[in-house]
Amino acid sequence: MCILFIAIEQHPKYPLIICANRDEFHQRPTQAMHVWQQSKILAGKDLQAGGTWLGLSSKGKFAALTNFRKFPLNEEAKKSRGGLVLQALASTENNLSEELAQQASQYHGFNLIHGSLNQLYCYDSVNNQCHELSKGVHSICNGALDDIWPKMARGEKLLSDTIHLQENLSIDALFDLMTNDKQALPNLLPETGLTEEWEQLLSAIFIVSPTYGTRTTSIITQDIEGSVEVYDRSYAPSGQCVAKQKFRL
Protein backbone atom coordinates (compact mmCIF):
# COMPACT_ATOMS: atom_id res chain seq x y z
CA MET A 1 0.00 0.00 0.00
CA CYS A 2 1.37 3.38 -0.94
CA ILE A 3 -1.16 5.99 0.16
CA LEU A 4 -4.33 6.23 2.23
CA PHE A 5 -6.67 9.11 2.91
CA ILE A 6 -8.96 8.69 5.90
CA ALA A 7 -11.85 10.99 6.83
CA ILE A 8 -13.23 10.59 10.36
CA GLU A 9 -16.53 12.27 11.29
CA GLN A 10 -16.41 14.59 8.29
CA HIS A 11 -19.61 13.52 6.49
CA PRO A 12 -23.08 13.53 8.12
CA LYS A 13 -23.98 10.10 6.71
CA TYR A 14 -20.56 8.45 6.64
CA PRO A 15 -18.46 8.91 9.80
CA LEU A 16 -15.64 6.89 8.24
CA ILE A 17 -14.32 7.07 4.68
CA ILE A 18 -11.08 5.31 3.67
CA CYS A 19 -9.50 5.72 0.23
CA ALA A 20 -6.40 3.62 -0.45
CA ASN A 21 -4.06 2.92 -3.37
CA ARG A 22 -1.68 0.00 -3.52
CA ASP A 23 1.42 0.68 -5.63
CA GLU A 24 3.61 -2.26 -6.59
CA PHE A 25 5.73 -3.74 -9.35
CA HIS A 26 3.42 -5.16 -12.01
CA GLN A 27 5.34 -8.43 -12.16
CA ARG A 28 4.61 -9.24 -8.49
CA PRO A 29 1.82 -11.88 -8.53
CA THR A 30 -1.36 -10.78 -6.80
CA GLN A 31 -4.85 -12.11 -6.13
CA ALA A 32 -7.58 -9.48 -6.08
CA MET A 33 -9.66 -8.76 -2.98
CA HIS A 34 -11.67 -11.76 -1.82
CA VAL A 35 -12.82 -13.51 1.36
CA TRP A 36 -10.10 -15.75 2.75
CA GLN A 37 -12.04 -18.83 3.80
CA GLN A 38 -9.70 -20.01 6.55
CA SER A 39 -9.18 -16.70 8.35
CA LYS A 40 -12.48 -15.05 7.32
CA ILE A 41 -10.90 -11.78 6.26
CA LEU A 42 -11.62 -9.65 3.22
CA ALA A 43 -8.35 -8.74 1.52
CA GLY A 44 -6.24 -9.02 -1.58
CA LYS A 45 -3.31 -11.42 -1.46
CA ASP A 46 0.35 -11.06 -2.29
CA LEU A 47 0.99 -14.43 -3.91
CA GLN A 48 4.76 -14.02 -3.60
CA ALA A 49 4.98 -13.67 0.19
CA GLY A 50 1.47 -14.67 1.27
CA GLY A 51 0.49 -11.47 3.09
CA THR A 52 -1.68 -8.52 2.19
CA TRP A 53 -1.61 -4.72 2.12
CA LEU A 54 -5.14 -3.99 3.36
CA GLY A 55 -7.91 -6.03 4.89
CA LEU A 56 -10.97 -6.23 7.10
CA SER A 57 -11.91 -9.03 9.47
CA SER A 58 -15.32 -10.54 10.16
CA LYS A 59 -15.04 -9.03 13.67
CA GLY A 60 -14.90 -5.48 12.36
CA LYS A 61 -11.15 -4.92 12.44
CA PHE A 62 -9.26 -2.98 9.79
CA ALA A 63 -5.56 -2.97 8.95
CA ALA A 64 -3.46 -1.50 6.16
CA LEU A 65 0.24 -1.00 5.63
CA THR A 66 2.49 1.46 3.85
CA ASN A 67 6.23 1.18 3.41
CA PHE A 68 8.28 3.90 5.12
CA ARG A 69 11.03 5.23 2.83
CA LYS A 70 13.91 6.85 4.65
CA PHE A 71 17.37 7.86 3.44
CA PRO A 72 19.67 5.98 3.32
CA LEU A 73 17.66 3.08 1.95
CA ASN A 74 18.37 -0.27 3.60
CA GLU A 75 18.65 -3.12 1.09
CA GLU A 76 19.13 -5.85 3.72
CA ALA A 77 16.71 -8.75 3.24
CA LYS A 78 14.04 -8.80 5.93
CA LYS A 79 10.59 -10.28 6.54
CA SER A 80 7.69 -9.33 4.27
CA ARG A 81 5.66 -6.56 5.85
CA GLY A 82 2.40 -7.95 4.46
CA GLY A 83 2.31 -10.43 7.33
CA LEU A 84 1.86 -7.54 9.77
CA VAL A 85 -1.59 -6.78 8.35
CA LEU A 86 -2.65 -10.38 8.97
CA GLN A 87 -1.24 -10.18 12.48
CA ALA A 88 -3.22 -7.01 13.22
CA LEU A 89 -6.45 -8.46 11.86
CA ALA A 90 -6.06 -11.62 13.96
CA SER A 91 -4.92 -9.86 17.12
CA THR A 92 -7.17 -9.87 20.18
CA GLU A 93 -4.64 -8.05 22.35
CA ASN A 94 -4.82 -4.42 23.41
CA ASN A 95 -1.04 -4.08 23.29
CA LEU A 96 -0.56 -4.64 19.56
CA SER A 97 1.62 -1.52 19.30
CA GLU A 98 3.96 -2.94 21.95
CA GLU A 99 4.19 -6.18 19.99
CA LEU A 100 4.93 -4.23 16.81
CA ALA A 101 7.68 -2.26 18.55
CA GLN A 102 9.33 -5.51 19.66
CA GLN A 103 9.17 -6.93 16.12
CA ALA A 104 9.96 -3.78 14.15
CA SER A 105 13.66 -4.54 13.61
CA GLN A 106 12.69 -7.67 11.68
CA TYR A 107 11.12 -5.54 8.95
CA HIS A 108 11.98 -2.57 6.79
CA GLY A 109 10.24 0.64 7.89
CA PHE A 110 6.45 0.69 7.85
CA ASN A 111 3.28 2.44 8.93
CA LEU A 112 0.51 0.11 10.10
CA ILE A 113 -3.01 1.48 10.42
CA HIS A 114 -5.02 -0.84 12.64
CA GLY A 115 -7.99 -1.12 14.97
CA SER A 116 -11.76 -1.15 14.77
CA LEU A 117 -13.47 1.03 12.19
CA ASN A 118 -14.62 3.21 15.09
CA GLN A 119 -11.14 3.64 16.57
CA LEU A 120 -8.11 3.54 14.32
CA TYR A 121 -4.43 3.85 15.21
CA CYS A 122 -1.28 4.33 13.16
CA TYR A 123 1.98 2.72 14.29
CA ASP A 124 5.16 4.17 12.77
CA SER A 125 8.07 1.70 13.06
CA VAL A 126 10.78 4.22 12.12
CA ASN A 127 9.91 6.67 14.90
CA ASN A 128 8.43 3.94 17.13
CA GLN A 129 5.28 5.96 17.71
CA CYS A 130 1.60 5.07 17.79
CA HIS A 131 -1.11 7.69 17.29
CA GLU A 132 -4.87 7.38 17.48
CA LEU A 133 -6.43 8.94 14.40
CA SER A 134 -8.47 11.92 15.56
CA LYS A 135 -11.51 13.53 13.99
CA GLY A 136 -10.52 15.08 10.66
CA VAL A 137 -8.86 14.11 7.38
CA HIS A 138 -5.60 12.18 7.50
CA SER A 139 -3.06 11.00 4.95
CA ILE A 140 -0.64 8.11 5.36
CA CYS A 141 2.02 7.51 2.72
CA ASN A 142 5.69 6.53 2.80
CA GLY A 143 6.71 8.86 5.62
CA ALA A 144 5.23 9.83 8.96
CA LEU A 145 1.48 10.23 9.51
CA ASP A 146 0.20 13.51 8.02
CA ASP A 147 3.55 14.52 6.51
CA ILE A 148 3.07 17.38 4.06
CA TRP A 149 4.18 15.75 0.82
CA PRO A 150 2.54 17.32 -2.27
CA LYS A 151 0.42 14.26 -3.10
CA MET A 152 -0.69 13.94 0.52
CA ALA A 153 -1.73 17.59 0.75
CA ARG A 154 -3.48 17.36 -2.64
CA GLY A 155 -5.39 14.23 -1.65
CA GLU A 156 -6.48 15.65 1.70
CA LYS A 157 -7.87 18.75 -0.01
CA LEU A 158 -9.61 16.76 -2.73
CA LEU A 159 -11.17 14.45 -0.17
CA SER A 160 -12.33 17.36 1.99
CA ASP A 161 -13.82 19.09 -1.05
CA THR A 162 -15.55 15.90 -2.19
CA ILE A 163 -17.08 15.37 1.23
CA HIS A 164 -18.19 18.94 1.91
CA LEU A 165 -19.53 19.75 -1.54
CA GLN A 166 -21.75 16.68 -1.81
CA GLU A 167 -24.73 15.88 0.39
CA ASN A 168 -24.79 12.35 -1.00
CA LEU A 169 -21.32 10.86 -1.14
CA SER A 170 -20.23 9.92 -4.66
CA ILE A 171 -18.09 6.79 -4.83
CA ASP A 172 -17.12 7.68 -8.39
CA ALA A 173 -15.83 11.04 -7.13
CA LEU A 174 -13.66 9.21 -4.59
CA PHE A 175 -12.24 7.01 -7.34
CA ASP A 176 -11.57 10.14 -9.41
CA LEU A 177 -9.58 11.48 -6.46
CA MET A 178 -7.55 8.28 -6.20
CA THR A 179 -6.78 8.19 -9.93
CA ASN A 180 -5.37 11.74 -9.95
CA ASP A 181 -2.07 11.38 -11.81
CA LYS A 182 -0.78 14.93 -11.37
CA GLN A 183 2.89 14.94 -10.40
CA ALA A 184 4.58 17.42 -8.07
CA LEU A 185 6.85 20.23 -9.20
CA PRO A 186 10.53 19.16 -9.03
CA ASN A 187 11.38 21.65 -6.27
CA LEU A 188 8.62 20.20 -4.05
CA LEU A 189 9.68 16.57 -4.27
CA PRO A 190 10.48 14.82 -0.97
CA GLU A 191 13.96 13.34 -0.53
CA THR A 192 13.59 9.71 0.48
CA GLY A 193 16.74 8.20 -1.02
CA LEU A 194 15.40 7.50 -4.51
CA THR A 195 16.59 9.07 -7.76
CA GLU A 196 14.88 12.28 -8.86
CA GLU A 197 13.23 10.34 -11.71
CA TRP A 198 11.64 7.91 -9.26
CA GLU A 199 10.67 10.64 -6.81
CA GLN A 200 8.92 12.41 -9.70
CA LEU A 201 7.05 9.27 -10.76
CA LEU A 202 5.98 8.48 -7.21
CA SER A 203 4.81 12.05 -6.52
CA ALA A 204 1.39 11.35 -8.06
CA ILE A 205 -1.51 9.85 -6.14
CA PHE A 206 -2.09 7.49 -9.09
CA ILE A 207 1.11 6.10 -10.58
CA VAL A 208 1.39 4.80 -14.14
CA SER A 209 4.50 3.22 -15.64
CA PRO A 210 5.26 -0.03 -17.49
CA THR A 211 7.10 -1.61 -14.55
CA TYR A 212 5.64 -0.08 -11.38
CA GLY A 213 2.40 1.65 -10.58
CA THR A 214 -0.96 1.72 -8.85
CA ARG A 215 -2.33 -1.81 -8.92
CA THR A 216 -5.55 -1.37 -6.93
CA THR A 217 -7.79 1.26 -5.35
CA SER A 218 -9.97 0.39 -2.36
CA ILE A 219 -12.75 2.64 -1.06
CA ILE A 220 -14.30 1.77 2.32
CA THR A 221 -17.26 3.57 3.84
CA GLN A 222 -19.08 3.07 7.13
CA ASP A 223 -22.44 4.80 7.50
CA ILE A 224 -24.10 6.11 10.66
CA GLU A 225 -25.90 2.78 11.12
CA GLY A 226 -22.64 0.85 11.04
CA SER A 227 -23.04 -0.69 7.59
CA VAL A 228 -19.76 -1.09 5.73
CA GLU A 229 -19.30 -1.11 1.97
CA VAL A 230 -16.04 -1.87 0.18
CA TYR A 231 -15.34 -0.96 -3.44
CA ASP A 232 -12.22 -2.34 -5.11
CA ARG A 233 -10.77 -1.74 -8.57
CA SER A 234 -7.75 -3.29 -10.24
CA TYR A 235 -5.61 -1.70 -12.95
CA ALA A 236 -3.41 -2.76 -15.83
CA PRO A 237 0.10 -1.27 -16.26
CA SER A 238 -1.47 1.26 -18.65
CA GLY A 239 -3.62 2.54 -15.77
CA GLN A 240 -6.79 1.16 -17.33
CA CYS A 241 -9.31 -0.34 -14.88
CA VAL A 242 -9.61 -4.09 -15.59
CA ALA A 243 -11.83 -5.25 -12.71
CA LYS A 244 -14.41 -3.82 -10.29
CA GLN A 245 -15.78 -5.41 -7.13
CA LYS A 246 -18.17 -4.42 -4.36
CA PHE A 247 -18.60 -6.02 -0.94
CA ARG A 248 -21.07 -5.26 1.85
CA LEU A 249 -20.21 -6.16 5.44
Results as ranks from 00 to 15, higher is better:
90 A>C: 14
228 V>K: 05
189 L>D: 12
120 L>W: 01
148 I>Y: 09
211 T>W: 01
189 L>K: 04
21 N>F: 00
128 N>Y: 01
243 A>E: 14
102 Q>F: 10
99 E>P: 06
210 P>N: 03
213 G>E: 03
6 I>V: 12
200 Q>Y: 13
1 M>F: 11
65 L>D: 10
12 P>H: 01
21 N>M: 04
146 D>I: 09
182 K>G: 13
71 F>T: 14
7 A>K: 08
180 N>Y: 04
33 M>D: 03
247 F>W: 05
232 D>R: 01
51 G>D: 13
88 A>N: 04
24 E>W: 05
65 L>Q: 07
17 I>T: 03
214 T>I: 03
31 Q>E: 15
67 N>T: 08
165 L>C: 14
231 Y>F: 15
33 M>W: 00
61 K>N: 06
245 Q>T: 07
46 D>F: 02
73 L>T: 05
41 I>Y: 06
6 I>S: 00
235 Y>V: 08
231 Y>N: 12
236 A>D: 13
95 N>S: 15
164 H>Q: 15
109 G>Y: 00
195 T>L: 08
165 L>I: 07
74 N>Y: 08
96 L>P: 04
131 H>D: 12
59 K>V: 09
235 Y>E: 08
114 H>L: 05
37 Q>P: 06
195 T>P: 09
11 H>W: 01
83 G>D: 13
141 C>P: 09
39 S>C: 03
247 F>S: 04
69 R>C: 13
64 A>Q: 07
118 N>Y: 06
38 Q>H: 07
152 M>Q: 10
73 L>R: 06
157 K>E: 13
241 C>G: 03
176 D>L: 12
75 E>P: 14
200 Q>E: 14
75 E>W: 12
146 D>Q: 10
243 A>V: 10
213 G>Q: 07
3 I>A: 06
96 L>H: 02
219 I>P: 06
102 Q>H: 10
174 L>I: 07
18 I>S: 06
188 L>S: 15
199 E>R: 01
84 L>S: 01
114 H>W: 12
121 Y>N: 11
204 A>T: 09
85 V>K: 04
147 D>N: 12
27 Q>S: 07
210 P>V: 03
198 W>Y: 12
158 L>I: 00
7 A>C: 09
198 W>E: 13
28 R>Q: 07
5 F>R: 08
44 G>Y: 04
185 L>D: 15
210 P>A: 01
182 K>I: 15
133 L>Q: 09
199 E>D: 09
201 L>C: 11
164 H>W: 13
155 G>I: 01
232 D>W: 01
190 P>A: 06
21 N>T: 00
209 S>C: 10
216 T>C: 05
227 S>L: 11
228 V>R: 08
79 K>A: 14
99 E>T: 12
106 Q>W: 04
48 Q>D: 14
9 E>A: 05
66 T>S: 08
208 V>R: 14
70 K>A: 12
75 E>L: 14
75 E>S: 15
133 L>E: 03
118 N>D: 12
125 S>H: 07
173 A>N: 12
63 A>N: 02
232 D>P: 02
183 Q>L: 07
33 M>Q: 04
94 N>W: 07
238 S>L: 05
141 C>T: 14
94 N>C: 10
175 F>V: 02
175 F>N: 00
149 W>K: 00
186 P>S: 00
226 G>C: 06
101 A>G: 06
7 A>G: 09
234 S>Q: 14
128 N>C: 07
136 G>P: 11
43 A>V: 01
86 L>S: 05
231 Y>I: 03
57 S>A: 08
219 I>N: 03
248 R>V: 13
200 Q>N: 13
72 P>L: 00
